[in-house]
Computed example of a mutant assay.
Amino acid sequence: MEDTPWSRPTMDDLKHVLESFGKSDTVNIRDVDRLELSVPAEVKTARGNTISAMTREISRQGLGLLHKGMLNPGEVNVKLASETREFEYRVQIMWCTPCENGMFISGGEFVTKPEN
């Protein structure tokens, strides 16, 4: 597969970025527990652009993503796929920040599950 600025991050990319954060001594003060989840995802922006991504974590209220290219805060559609099913959610991207190797991490809250 050709490596473009918008190609999906690999599992190695995800591992490298997560390892670069290191272990923190700070206490997790999040309201909702998050589970690590590394699956392919597609983000469709309000302008109609599709960005390939990998999930980093998920909770009942939202999810974290790793991708190439900046995502602006706002509502997007996020597709996640398993071997047997595909899931699509409306997500309000709350933040996006650059990290290593031209990658970005972002986080968002679930808005609703879109109607098919």
Rank of each mutant, 00 (worst) to 15 (best):
E2F: 08
E2V: 09
E2A: 10
P5V: 02
P5R: 10
P5A: 14
W6Y: 07
W6F: 14
S7F: 10
S7N: 04
S7A: 10
S7M: 01
R8A: 04
T10H: 06
M11L: 13
M11Q: 10
D12L: 12
D12G: 10
L14C: 09
H16Q: 07
H16G: 06
H16K: 10
V17S: 05
L18R: 13
S20D: 14
F21H: 12
F21E: 12
G22V: 11
G22Y: 13
K23V: 08
D25E: 13
T26R: 11
T26K: 10
V27F: 12
N28Q: 03
N28G: 00
D31T: 03
L35P: 02
L35F: 12
E36Y: 07
S38K: 11
V39P: 07
V39E: 08
V39M: 13
P40T: 06
P40A: 12
A41Y: 03
E42R: 12
T45P: 01
G48V: 03
G48M: 08
S52E: 10
S52Y: 06
R56Y: 07
E57H: 06
E57P: 01
I58M: 10
R60Q: 11
R60L: 14
G62E: 02
H67G: 00
H67L: 02
K68S: 05
K68R: 12
G69Q: 04
M70K: 13
M70F: 14
L71Y: 02
N72D: 06
P73D: 08
P73K: 04
G74P: 07
V78S: 03
V78E: 05
K79T: 15
S82E: 15
S82T: 15
E83S: 15
E83Q: 15
T84C: 08
R85A: 15
E86A: 14
E86R: 14
F87W: 15
F87Q: 14
Y89L: 08
Q92P: 07
I93Y: 03
I93A: 04
C96T: 08
P98C: 07
P98D: 05
C99Q: 01
E100L: 15
E100K: 08
E100F: 11
N101Q: 05
G102K: 01
M103K: 06
M103H: 13
I105E: 00
I105F: 04
S106Q: 05
G107L: 06
G108F: 03
G108P: 01
E109G: 11
E109Q: 04
F110E: 04
T112A: 12
K113R: 11
P114H: 13
E115I: 10
N116A: 10
